[in-house]
Amino acid sequence: MRDLYDRLKTAFPLGELTEQRPDLAFVTVAKEQLRSLLLHLRDQEGFTHLVLLTAVDWLEEGNFQLTYLMNNRLACRDLGVRVMLPRDPASMDSIHDLWPTAATYQRELREMFGIDFPGSPRVDEDFILEGWIRTPPYRRDFDTLKFSDEVFAPRPGRASSDPTEFMKQQLYPDKT
């Protein structure tokens, strides 16, 4: 992986290489360089298979991390390309013309994270959710339990006691 990194480094400004396994590494690239890097990887380096495209919400830093995982199936190794995006407003170039499957990933990211991919086919259509009007659910600031309790109303009649408190009450009733 290191040799590949050194090769890429001459052409692209890359962040540090994180070698997770001998056949898997991650590298960070600026938003603007992503497209040309992916093209280079696909056409020159044999990384023809886009394994996945997903996002990680680093809420505390105010960033989204997009991970493009590329696979070179002849060399049997993977390279994860990370792109950091500002969280609000989040927008990224579409790569659906490089891999038609990317359009699906981008639709999902649009719906679940609220990351826009202008020009991607059907990107504004409902994908998985239907009639969703709240914060995109995969964002870290969306509290799913709270939402569920309010909207779906769990069955009443459940209550639990904390052993510590309960024992204090039972054993030392006057010292609560």
């Binding site: 904390d162 052993p163 510590t164 024992m167 204090k168 039972q170 054993l171 030392y172």
Partner: peptide, 8 residues
């Protein structure tokens, strides 16, 4: 396991 039986 943080059960708290010891506390009482």
């Amino acid at each position: 396991v943080s059960c708290g039986l010891c506390v009482a």
